[in-house]
């Protein structure tokens, strides 16, 4: 698998990362090198082996349906949530107008 300049430009645009033409030129061989390196994994025969989802045997833990049980993962902290917003008014985040 390899990528060309147009593909890299598209991925950058989807990720909203601004990349200059010069940077694009440099990125194409870099990304292709990484892809090639990872592709070596394809040489390993994994027939009949279950995909590994975690390095140690572990299953997903679930939380109870309780509101604000833990201050770190609960709501009711609007000031903290809005603190880093470039613009906030009347309790809302303010963003450049996006309209369909």
């Amino acid at each position: 698998m390899s990528v060309d300049k147009a593909t890299v430009a598209r991925i950058a645009s989807l990720a909203r990362i601004k990349v200059s033409d010069e940077e694009l030129e440099a990125m194409v061989p870099e990304l292709n090198q990484i892809l090639g390196w990872v592709e070596q994994l394809g040489e390993v025969d994994v027939t009949g082996i279950e995909p590994m989802t975690a390095v140690i045997p572990n299953t997903l833990r679930l939380r109870d349906d309780v509101v604000d049980a833990d201050p770190l993962t609960g709501g009711g902290r609007r000031d903290a949530v809005l603190a880093n917003a470039p613009a906030a008014e009347h309790g809302f985040f303010g963003v450049p107008k996006v309209i369909e």
């Binding site: 939380r63 309780v66 509101v67 604000d68 049980a69 833990d70 770190l72 993962t73 609960g74 709501g75 009711g76 902290r77 609007r78 903290a80 949530v81 809005l82 009347h90 309790g91 809302f92 985040f93």
Partner: peptide
């Protein structure tokens, strides 16, 4: 753990 109730004050039911 943030609440889901409808009609609350804006951004009052938002966790980190």
């Amino acid at each position: 753990g943030a609440a889901t109730a409808f009609g609350a004050e804006p951004n009052s039911q938002v966790s980190l």
